[in-house]
Design a protein around this nucleic acid. Structure first.
Lengths: 253, 253
DNA sequence: TGAATAGTGTCTATAAGACAATATCCC
DNA sequence: GGGATATTGTCTTATAGACACTATTCA
């Protein structure tokens, strides 16, 4: 890049620099933390959705979210939203992506740092009181593999929910990311209770990936990974040979 | 979560809502787009670094970056930084992560949306005039695989650069992401000129991954992927049997 | 002709899929 | 004992690593 003659007073970097020191001198975007809280319920992936009670998108469904306060980190903001909106803490939480199209919110410029959270449905159902304005909606993606694209959210009546803002894209990206992570990280455990059978784990993987898995191969891979520790106990009262229960042990610990 | 009695005037959601409508009523963070521009030079990964001419971290090295303007998307802001600071456009650019620790910038709250850009060194060296305050620094990570952690940046004199802010973490994350992508996406091409030999591609992979690869297996995998198209031409004047030149063809196109 | 690297063919080890056989529980 | 699913073992197939061999260019 050919160097230009220095013009200190109008250099865009210099202007930006001064802006950073004088918050009142220019407009800044608002920044929110939005949460895709996923769980597996009745052999399907579900996300926690909240009905909007304000314009814009009044009556449409949106992800739980809130503004990032000046004294909290993004992760702390996401944890706070998780606690305030779902009554949960200490669950898997990971930054997903930051959405910043200038027109994504018709009110004003709002940049959203999206987080993905995973929890087993028992914990979520205990913590969360569902009602008229909060629900677990089934997540439905029309694409295979890790192709990506927006998600549809289906209510208990089987009808497609109307979603606010770009939240269909955010949920879609969460599913894509989750599918990708499944191959090389032990993330499936996050969607199950503390102890679980191999078949339960396989069902979780199948639900997320959207296609059936080979049982033998899945068993071998999981046991060979060294991340599962047998509890010594087994299922009870199941009407057939009970499966052994496992616990997540972490990598080579 | 037990539902609390409604207190409309002090509901934190309501306060947040009002804040969004009245920009002057509260402090908002500044948002910047920071760029990790990577290239492979002399069999080593390098990143474009800029020496700071202002406090804080005066004299330390930092990633190219700039404030996100109110009317531009995050990606457009990153492209603009790429153009302004490196003189490049139309190269691989992908959002990496958003860094938002409240104290990461001692001046004021600045949230940084980090982007990773990849370019072949020929293009970068043509576009970029290096000088006293801009350099390509060798990227050195002390961790293996995709473990992650901060990166060290080494200047031409072999000495470690002093880095500003949390930029060592940002570069480290870029390397980790790049290593992860290499396995399942054709991202290595972005660091090579339009046509290249299989061995050049292998060197790029080895440099990024930080360990040698099996030549036979690499060849087979790459050719089997269907993403390489032979150009029909070969190297010239190389003092040995010339290698065939390939071009990136995209998945099954 | 020789040096040097490109490219091919073959063998072996490892992991995945298929499938049969056996084990264990509840009724 | 019968129904049902869990678990183990074996065979087959696909893929990765190792290694030997041949090919092509320039000096």
């Amino acid at each position: 890049m050919p160097r230009q003659p220095p013009k200190p007073k109008t250099d865009p970097q210099e202007v930006d620099f001064l802006k950073a020191y004088d918050p009142a001198s220019f407009d800044r975007p608002s920044v929110t933390a939005d949460l895709v809280l996923l769980t597996v319920l009745e052999d399907a992936l579900h996300a926690l959705m909240i009905r909007r009670s304000e314009h814009p998108f009044l009556g449409a469904w949106s992800l739980p979210g809130g503004f990032v306060h000046m004294d909290e980190s993004l992760e702390v903001a996401a944890s706070r939203v998780l606690r305030e909106k779902a009554g949960l803490s200490r669950i898997f939480l990971e930054q997903l992506y930051t959405f910043g199209e200038p027109t994504r919110d018709p009110r004003t410029r709002i940049i959203s740092v999206a987080y993905m959270a995973l929890v087993d449905s028992d914990r979520l159902l205990k913590a969360q009181s569902h009602g008229h304005d909060v629900q677990l909606a089934r997540v439905d993606v029309s694409w295979a593999g890790e192709e990506g694209g927006p998600a549809k959210l289906i209510g208990p009546d089987g009808k497609k929910l109307s979603l606010a803002f770009d939240h269909a894209d955010i949920v879609g990206l969460a599913v894509k990311r989750l599918r990708g992570k499944l191959d090389y990280t032990p993330v499936g455990f996050q969607l199950l209770p503390a102890t679980f059978t191999l078949f339960q784990l396989q069902r979780v993987h199948e639900v997320i990936l959207g296609h059936p898995l080979n049982k033998d191969s899945f068993r071998r891979r999981m046991l060979a990974s060294g991340q599962l520790k047998p509890t010594g106990h087994a299922q009870e009262d199941v009407g057939h040979r009970p499966a052994g229960l496992y616990r997540f042990a972490g990598p080579s610990t």
